[in-house]
Nucleic acid binder design. Structure first.
Lengths: 141, 141
DNA sequence: CTGTGTGCAAACTCTTTGCATAAGT
DNA sequence: ACTTATGCAAAGAGTTTGCACACAG
């Protein structure tokens, strides 16, 4: 393993962004780096903004929001809604589910293949199922 | 069955509120009436406020929010989070799930006994499951 | 160069809060 | 009377937007 840590060659990021029609700007690259360098993550805009600043990346909160939405539209992220006041963005774009701890606001992935939902009624007339989302709300035992 | 329509005697409301430690004020009664008189409902604060005004009930939006939260704390309502920007309140406090149509913001109940979720992994250490919530996101076919 | 992205601050939406007034018991 | 709820308007959080400047190609 001469260079890089297997799954994420930094060099892949610019191409990955450009491939989705996003110009690999300094800010987007830095944010993508933070997001995708370390396994599956669940971040809020504020989280990511803070992280960027801590990492010495000069980026505005508005740009973080823009980037998160652009990444989501481009299929690099998925948004998760578990609580009204914050928006979470999930780097895992495969179908999967979540544990959510209301107390500390933490999200944990549940592999989509692990869970099976049985007994689903037919969707209302004229609509079809886009996605089944399971949220397991946790309390401290 | 001499009087009332079985599940919701209007006379029951004041008692129902008082029983939960809520003083049956004019506004709370009117809102409770709107909420509980007609089967299961999913409303936003704005919805309910509008409805109240339409029904000629003078009530402020802040009071609607207060009442919705008080009712929720008292176990008369349950809050449902499907989308970041709005908070929904559900008059069905039994365990159940939802269809959610992103396009028109409509929520439809799915009986809790209909669905079975299998294959749930053990919750993270130190926590236990409070509630499993299934949201079936719909698209117009 | 040329067009897209960014930063900043202001605007916006939904929700909560503080304090004087009104209503419930 | 005494306590609790309400109304209003202002504050608050999170998010979005508009426009001048900066950067990537």
């Amino acid at each position: 393993m001469a260079k890089g840590t297997s799954h994420h060659r930094p060099d892949g990021l610019p191409l990955r962004l450009r491939h989705r029609g996003l110009r690999p700007t300094r800010q987007r690259l830095a944010l993508a780096q933070l997001l995708f360098a370390s396994g599956n993550r669940h971040v809020t805009a504020e989280d990511l903004h803070q992280e960027a600043r801590t990492a010495g990346v000069r980026v505005s909160l508005a740009t973080v929001y823009n980037a998160l939405h652009q990444f989501t539209a481009a299929g690099l992220l998925r948004s998760v809604t578990v609580e009204g006041s914050r928006s979470y963005f999930d780097t895992n774009t495969l179908d999967h589910h979540h544990f959510y701890c209301e107390e500390d606001g933490r999200l944990v992935d549940i592999d989509g293949t692990a869970i099976r939902v049985a007994g689903l009624p037919a969707p209302p007339n004229g609509s079809s199922v886009e996605r089944v989302e399971v949220i397991v709300r946790l309390k401290t035992k």
